[in-house]
């Protein structure tokens, strides 16, 4: 009900369905520095939204707000909302359990960070945390997730090997499988290829294009070519503020703001 109501009151900017939106989002670190200033940004369903901008512009801070990673460290403070659709929930609300949020919105980190456990256990962990103990279900879902992360063929014969024995690119795909196994609605990527070689990077990029058929993706990247290659929407941030948010094609060919153009053409940053 509420969701449909909302659609009528809001002018639609693009023809895609809004999956999540930040509304007037401010963020303060424990030491008092404000890392995000009044950020309003929509994340669209089955699309890849890329966040670009110079280091320290707040793009990672923004990404980590989506699964309440900042709650792990005391003293951090959010103002404003991040609303998740279709149920219209403000996931930053104090009454919302961050753990539930993380179960709906999963994350892949900058450096591959598999647990020092077997490949199988890495993927199954999210399911186990949810209380899934049935071996058949686990087997099935692990296989499905590894297939989804196009890793299955490479590891199906050594599921019980230590995850550390995989190559960097494989480890990152394993982390994607781990995030995928719990069937999240949104997947967050924090510079997922910055620690990988070019071939592994291409693999991950192709994988992301495949993944967006099932879910929505928000990615932080340092690499502008990458943003141009894979994203549907692109947002340029600077000093904690959202400067411009538009279709990727538009941003890279005809940005409406001078700052964006300077950054993209390499005059700045």
């Amino acid at each position: 009900m509420v969701a449909t109501q909302r659609k009528t009151t809001q002018k639609k900017r693009f023809n895609d369905v809004v999956k999540a939106e930040s509304r007037n989002l401010d963020f303060y670190y424990a030491d008092g520095t404000q890392a995000l200033k009044n950020v309003n940004l929509d994340v669209y369903e089955n699309k890849i939204t890329a966040l670009i901008g110079p280091s320290g512009c707040g793009k990672s801070t923004f990404l980590r707000s989506f699964n309440r990673m900042h709650d792990l460290y005391t003293g951090n403070r959010y103002d404003g909302q991040i609303v998740l659709h279709p149920d219209n929930t403000n996931i930053l609300d104090k009454k919302v359990d961050p753990i539930e949020v993380r179960m709906r919105i999963s994350m892949v980190f900058q450096k591959p960070n598999p647990f020092p456990k077997s490949i199988y256990e890495n993927v199954a962990y999210g399911l186990r945390v949810r209380g899934e103990a049935n071996t058949h279900v686990l087997d099935e879902k692990v296989e499905e997730a590894l297939k989804g992360a196009s890793l299955w063929e490479e590891v199906k014969d050594r599921l019980h090997d230590l995850a550390f024995n995989l190559s960097g690119g494989q480890q990152q795909r394993l982390c994607i499988a781990r995030a995928l196994a719990t069937e999240p609605e949104i997947m967050l990527f924090d510079e997922p290829t910055s620690a990988l070689d070019p071939i592994a990077t291409v693999n991950i990029e192709e994988l992301m294009s495949e993944l967006k058929k099932k879910l929505s993706i928000l990615i932080v990247t340092h690499n502008m070519q990458q943003a141009a290659r894979i994203s549907d929407y692109c947002a340029y941030m600077y000093l904690g503020e959202l400067v411009e948010h538009d279709l990727t094609d538009k941003i890279f060919t005809n940005p409406s703001k001078k700052e964006t153009e300077d950054y993209i053409t390499g005059k700045f940053g």
Binding site: V2, R6, T9, Q10, K11, R13, E21, R23, N24, N40, D42, Q81, V83, D87, N88, T89, N90, I91, D93, K95, V96, D97, E100, V101, R104
Partner: peptide, 14 residues
Amino acid sequence: AINVMQDTVISPKL
């Protein structure tokens, strides 16, 4: 228009 504040709901699941 994005700035229009809407009352959000909290699903029991969350």
